[in-house]
């Protein structure tokens, strides 16, 4: 079998407009980053709220958050994506449905679905990290805060959360990286993010080894850079005299 190696393929014309294959990869990376960043913001905000709810004495609130986590962690991401993309729009009010299905560009409606899906999916994981972080703090910390007259919101705001978030930076880093990797499911509902562009390049050019190699290199470099970024964040918020853990 003859395979025609050609590493110069990325600079060749795709035959569509003036684009070269490299342009496709750049567009794809753009979508991947756009999906992951917005989904991460949703996950961070919602996940933190849920994580706090999980640790509250109020049984109803912690139960709701617990149910959320169980639901979103035990249904495969792809099933969730299909639900958001194919099913949920049919249950929207008439006017919204028309807007979502007809007025929006297909890429935009796919983008909205995947961002909501990935954001809510990741929120369940963030919730568990936040909860673990809060529960890892010694009970005396909240006691001391209450003893000084702090209200419950103040105890979380000034004492528990600043410490919990510092503790959970390493596991949160891997959740952050997961969002980028998981965003590749968007290719299955037609969003032309990095993986979809890679497949398209492999099909158009027949240079599938080169295409997939470039894609893995891009993911690899992206991963390393994000890890460096989070390492920098961790360093910035490091507290003198406190190595990794709290307590005595």
């Amino acid at each position: 079998m003859n395979y025609h190696w050609d590493w110069g393929v990325f600079f060749k014309s795709t035959g569509i407009g003036h684009e070269i294959y490299l342009d496709w990869f750049i567009t794809g990376l753009g979508w991947t980053v756009a999906v992951a960043m917005v989904a991460w913001v949703i996950a961070l905000i919602l996940g933190s709220v849920l994580g706090v709810m999980r640790t509250l004495p109020n049984k109803t609130l912690s139960g709701v958050a617990g149910g959320y986590v169980a639901l979103f962690r035990n249904v495969p991401l792809l099933v969730q994506l299909f639900l958001w993309y194919f099913l949920v729009p049919d249950f929207l009010p008439e006017s919204l449905q028309v807007w979502f299905k007809q007025d929006l560009k297909p890429a935009t409606s796919a983008y909205i679905s995947v961002v909501v899906c990935l954001g809510l999916f990741t929120a369940a994981r963030v919730c568990e990290q936040v909860r673990t972080g809060i529960e890892a703090l010694p009970k005396g910390q909240s006691n001391a805060a209450y003893a000084m007259g702090f209200t419950l919101p103040q105890v979380y705001r000034h004492v528990l959360l600043p410490q919990a978030f510092r503790i959970i930076i390493p596991p949160m880093t891997s959740e952050f990286l997961n969002v980028f990797k998981n965003s590749s499911v968007a290719s299955l509902i037609g969003l032309m993010e990095l993986l979809a562009q890679t497949k398209q390049t492999a099909e158009f050019s027949a240079n599938l080894f080169e295409a997939f190699t470039l894609a893995t290199v891009i993911y690899f470099v992206l991963n390393m850079s994000l890890m460096k970024l989070m390492g920098w964040v961790e360093n910035r918020v490091r507290v003198p005299g406190l190595i990794g853990s709290t307590g005595k």
Binding site: L177, S184, L195, T198
Partner: peptide, 10 residues
């Protein structure tokens, strides 16, 4: 550091 879906497709 790479997505599972990429590995499957590749």
């Amino acid at each position: 550091s790479i997505p599972l879906l990429l590995v499957i497709s590749w």
